[in-house]
């Protein structure tokens, strides 16, 4: 008697698993949305103050350090190997970005930088979280373009100048919706996109003001 006939359940499970493996590899090979078999970690580059604020108004050095501590405590943020030099000059940041595959490079800002941009009323703020979360509460002044349905909001951004400063936030560094929105806007040739990577969770933790006005349908 063959082993397969003695263990029909094991045989059937094996067949389903092998079928799934085969179909997934074949489909991935032909799909326009196919992905690499080995994940490529997104590159996040910390934007230096000198690239964001006019000369002479950069944060003191110790504030830089405090920001870095925050980054470390998050435990999950992946900053590019060029992080250190990127912190020093805007040029190195540009060079690093150019050297990498552009679609996988994200320029991130800290809470302090984000607050300074807001204080200067600079840029447009987009909340990339799901619409339901946005309707409950949000950072004041934010507009909602959920990352998963960014394509549906083409008309909201189509007429904007491509050099408009755009700041995007999601829940936290693990939330990919912010990166999805950044990719969408990048594909529309917006050149000045920043990701407040620590996002909503960090904003709440810092006890910053929140707009909790319920938005109805």
């Amino acid at each position: 008697m063959e082993p397969n006939s003695r263990h029909p359940l094991a045989r059937d499970i094996l067949i389903i698993v092998l079928l799934a493996v085969m179909l997934s590899l074949v489909y991935n090979g032909f799909s326009p949305h196919g992905i690499d078999l080995i994940r490529v970690e997104p590159t996040k580059i910390a934007v230096p103050d000198s690239a964001l604020f006019p000369e002479g108004t950069a944060l003191p050095r110790q504030e830089h350090r405090a920001v870095n501590d925050t980054v470390g405590s998050a435990g999950t943020r992946v900053i590019a190997p060029l992080h250190e030099q990127a912190l020093h000059t805007a040029d190195s940041m540009k060079a690093a970005a150019a050297a990498k595959k552009q679609e996988n490079v994200y320029r991130i800002i800290t809470l302090e930088q984000f607050k300074r941009l807001r204080a200067g009323h600079r840029g447009i703020l987009y909340d990339a979280r799901a619409a339901d979360d946005f309707k409950k509460s949000r950072i004041p002044g934010a507009k909602n373009i959920p990352g998963q349905e960014a394509e549906n909001h083409f008309e909201d951004v189509a007429d904007l100048q491509r050099d408009t400063l755009i700041v995007i936030y999601c829940n936290n560094p693990d939330c990919h919706l912010g990166r999805v929105l950044a990719e969408f806007l990048g594909a529309l040739e917006f050149r000045n996109i920043l990701l407040y990577d620590d996002g909503w969770d960090d904003w709440l933790k810092a006890k910053e003001p929140v707009d909790s006005t319920r938005i109805s349908e």
């Binding site: 389903i16 997934s24 991935n28 992905i35 994940r39």
Partner: peptide, 19 residues
């Protein structure tokens, strides 16, 4: 591990579909 993320992301949905 990072190396397994994409492989799982490809296979699990097909397992779900077949099941």
């Amino acid at each position: 591990p990072d190396a397994a993320v994409n492989v799982l992301a490809l296979i699990i949905p097909w397992l779900e579909l077949l099941c």
